[in-house]
Design a protein around this nucleic acid. Sequence first.
DNA 1: GTCTATAGAGAGATAGAC
DNA 2: GTCTATCTCTCTATAGAC
Lengths: 199, 199
Amino acid sequence: MSNTNIKTLSPRKQEILTAAQKLFSEKGFNAASMRDVAKKLDIRPASLYSHYNSKDDILWEIAIRCANEFHQKVDPIAKLDLPIEVRLEKMITAHIYVIIKNINASAIFFQEWKHLNEPRLSEYAQSVAEYEALFRNLIQEGIQEGIFRNDLRPGFITAMILSSVNWIHQWYKPEGNMTAENIGKQAVRMILEGLYKAG
Amino acid sequence: MSNTNIKTLSPRKQEILTAAQKLFSEKGFNAASMRDVAKKLDIRPASLYSHYNSKDDILWEIAIRCANEFHQKVDPIAKLDLPIEVRLEKMITAHIYVIIKNINASAIFFQEWKHLNEPRLSEYAQSVAEYEALFRNLIQEGIQEGIFRNDLRPGFITAMILSSVNWIHQWYKPEGNMTAENIGKQAVRMILEGLYKAG
DNA sequence: GTCTATAGAGAGATAGAC
DNA sequence: GTCTATCTCTCTATAGAC
């Protein structure tokens, strides 16, 4: 799943994908039409079908490429021989990096996945489950080692952490001065240390 | 905005709303059709229009009633004369309570608002902004009083907190044994104290 | 208030010329 | 690979009988 090879796209396919990502994320998959995508590229709707066989195929390409991006950036960090809290910090920062570098694609990844059909929907779900397990296992490890609190279930903690960062695409504006590292550091501080003032 | 009076619905309108909430939240607003709603109630699609003038009107009723529910439950708590962290805990718990008691409506509230049209979209945005300000102002207060950490911006903290709890509708299953109070207490612990083991 | 029937718009997708 | 033209389907919504 996480090893799916992602081919390089032809220039035209890349243009279509970029236009579709913007439109699908702004209006939602169903509200954005193939006519909208074509208009954005100044071609006729029918021409799109020389590159993609269906609208569903475009959604799938967006989703699977985004899933691969998350895995590609985060999987290696989970295997590093580093202190647990350092690994968690690096994984969260990498996760946020992927979101910010693929702001439209990640919005679709998180919000429009329900419009995938089987068997793709199951493949998506499995990829997400495996990805979340990276975080959950690390947190579990931290609890067992006595670093992390042991009064909350790892699944609950994981859900809260990923939820808090997966919403970034809703408010992040590229023109702002916050980098992924910047946001990552702040998010990790909040997640690890909480809101109370230390001391 | 937060004082909009919510009328009691006729039994039929309530049935339509319940069916629409389930379908809109499961399939998304655009993918769920008026035919789907009618089928669920075992009536003809045309009959729906004796109760609601349009599909947009149904979405609006769902959104505005949910917004009012949040304000109605949380606004009074923000005004209570209680320690800041107690107020925050009670507000978060009440917020989670509204999500869980209106699991379909809140999913639509958070995910389908982009399908609102003007001027309703602006009214929605203002209601949300006012609501978020309740939390942000409280956090700001806590920072000034030296209770909360002062190295993170209140807006950033607010976004992280609300994001982490607004995702509950994605994983919450009513058949589970977690109550709103239960989830609220755990979420608040995580938010205030963080992941690190105390001591 | 619900029905049958259907108008009118817009969707995804295909055929075949160039 | 892009075009024109169009098929077919589904959607929201309306008209008018009961």
